[in-house]
Computed example of a mutant assay.
Amino acid sequence: MSTGPVQLKAEVFSVAKAGEYRQFTIVAPQIATGFQPGHFVAVAVGGENSAMGLRRAFALSGATPSDAYAGTVQFVVAEHGPGTRWLVQRKPGDVLDVVGPLGTPFPLPSGPAPAVLVGGGYGAAPLLPLAQALLAAGSPVEFVLGAANASRLYGELAAKRMVGSVTVTTDDGSAGVRGLVTDALPDVIERMEAQIVYACGPMRMLQAVGELAQRRGIRAQVAVEESMACGIGVCMTCVLPVRGDDGKSRFVRACVDGPVFDAQTVRWNDIGALPPDLVGADAMGGH
């Protein structure tokens, strides 16, 4: 069976409340078969007659590959606007138009390596299957999970069941330690002698995590939260400036070239701008 992206009509198997979020489990055996941690799906919203033509992208928080039964995948939805508002109103038995699995997965270390997984809000979703993959490969794993408040945390109990050690931070102190994930991260890195950091969450958090890891002399692999309308690299809504192996910077598409990047290669301060030293920027300057 092909493990490339497919478009299919997926039945909603279950919808569970998780703090301020909704966790969907959908029947999608072709997507489950090709799933790797870091992949996402692009979901059509609004129904067939809706004017909302752009899909919404959601990182996959898990998958059960098909065998004798239909395979399922899970993703988490936060209500932000009309599209996600329509989606969180779906019920078991409803059918969604879904494309996946999309994107590049998290790269795993070549051998066992202590890893810290840092999640911001529901950005923790793709880190749960990543932790399973790292543990299966013999890598010690710890989590640092943060959010604005307790209701916006995601995955704490699942993470504790997997790895035991989970550090929680909230901006308002309503759960765990008051502060940011980057306040707690240095101690965790030092205690477990971490060799790599993985992170997913808001862009400012990813930048701060990447800079902290760089100061510690270790790599940070981050899954960016850029808006991805098509998910297949056509619409160009998710471009961001990234340095290549040749040292030159180019706009890349987060949906097909990412969403996972080495944090040191992303030009965080230039996101949303057209830096003059980007390859091809001279040709775009007049437009």
Results as ranks from 00 to 15, higher is better:
Val99Leu: 15
Val88Ile: 15
Glu211Cys: 02
Gly93Met: 08
Arg250Trp: 04
Lys9Arg: 14
Thr25Ile: 04
Gly244Ile: 09
Pro105Gln: 13
Val41Asn: 15
Leu157Trp: 02
Gly93Cys: 05
Leu145Glu: 14
Pro101Leu: 14
Ala150His: 14
Val256Phe: 10
Ala158Lys: 05
Thr265Gly: 05
Arg219Gln: 02
Glu79Ala: 11
Tyr154Glu: 01
Ser249Asp: 15
Gly83Glu: 12
Val116Leu: 00
Gly81Lys: 11
Pro92Ala: 08
Asn269Leu: 08
Arg22Asp: 11
Asp67Thr: 15
Ser174Ile: 09
Leu212Cys: 07
Gly38Cys: 12
Met162Val: 02
Thr182Arg: 04
Gly247Tyr: 05
Asn149Ile: 01
Phe75Tyr: 14
Met284Ala: 06
Ser174Lys: 07
Phe143Pro: 09
Gly123Cys: 01
Pro65Trp: 06
Pro37Ser: 02
Gly93Trp: 05
Pro140Ser: 08
Asp270Thr: 04
Val45Gly: 11
Phe75His: 13
Ser2Val: 10
Cys230Pro: 01
Ala133Glu: 15
Thr64Gly: 01
Pro92Met: 13
Pro202Asp: 13
Leu8Ser: 13
Gln30Pro: 03
Val45Glu: 12
Val144Phe: 06
Asp94Trp: 00
Val98Glu: 12
Pro140Gln: 11
Gly146Ile: 08
Glu226Gln: 07
Ala213Gln: 10
Gly62Met: 01
Gly164Tyr: 05
Pro186Arg: 07
Thr167Ala: 14
Pro114Trp: 12
Arg152Val: 00
Tyr154Val: 04
Ala273Pro: 00
Arg85Leu: 13
Ala148Tyr: 06
Pro5Ala: 10
Val98Ser: 12
Gly285Cys: 01
Thr3Arg: 15
Leu117Asn: 09
Met236Gln: 03
Thr3Asp: 15
Ala199Arg: 04
Ala51Thr: 14
Ala113Gln: 08
Leu54Cys: 10
Asp257Ala: 12
Thr265Ala: 15
Ala28Lys: 05
Leu128Glu: 09
Gly247Gln: 04
Arg90Asn: 10
Ala32Ser: 05
Thr265Cys: 11
Thr72His: 03
Val88Asn: 09
Val118Cys: 08
Ala16Phe: 02
